[in-house]
Amino acid sequence: MPDPVIQVRGLRYTYDDGTVALNGIDFDLYPGETVALLGANGSGKTTFVLHLNGLLHGSDSVIVCGLPVIAANLPEVRRKVGVVFQDSDEQLFMPTVLEDVAFGPLNLGLSPEEAIARARKSLEQAGIASALHKSPYHLSAGEKRRVAIAGVLAMVPDILVLDEPTTYLDPPGQRELLALLRQLPQAKIVVTHDMQFARAIASRAVFFEKGKIAAAGSVDELVSRFHWRSE
């Protein structure tokens, strides 16, 4: 078995108000696989993924591609782990799509010309090259999600983390997103409440409960074990 691209051992995190969000998480992600994170609201899924590129710092170890997530490694860790946030409006903060997608490459130290080339390439990869000079405010929810993904792809990450990627998307938008994600070769972690989407994309799943991973298995196994369906 290849080495995991993400290795988490005994991760704990408590918010300032005393809420224990993570209570001893062990987790591995292997190259090329897609893992769905399932569980109730407030079970710790989003808190967990925010640790993977050092946006939150809990106790014990998180290792990304052999690098411990510590302050000295943050630039490299953030290049390797691309996070697509639930609310695209928070991710698209620059005045135009081009400038937004080029934001990450510029932070990596690329020249403006190289950053523009990267931005164009990743917008094409995400199927939204036509929006290059548009303002993010004028895009539809599906287009915003594609641009947000392009912004992350422009950093050429090894791992993609998507937090509730189907939120605000209509069914065609969800289908398009699924097709796009299937094309991308990176290992992926997908936080989702959408079981149909989870089934379609994930090779395995883990179920979060009260800050712990309560179970791991296929999406169908976890859905039936935790009665995790809306109907």
Binding site: L50, N53, L55, P75, R78, R79, G82, V83, F85, E90, Q91, F93, L98, E99, A102, F103, G104, L106, N107, L108, P112, A115, I116, G151, V152, M155
Partner: peptide, 15 residues
């Protein structure tokens, strides 16, 4: 947070 996640280090680099 979204800015930090894409490598923002306090200095805004613009095209």
């Amino acid at each position: 947070q979204a800015m930090l996640a894409r490598g923002f280090d306090g200095h805004l680099r613009l095209l």
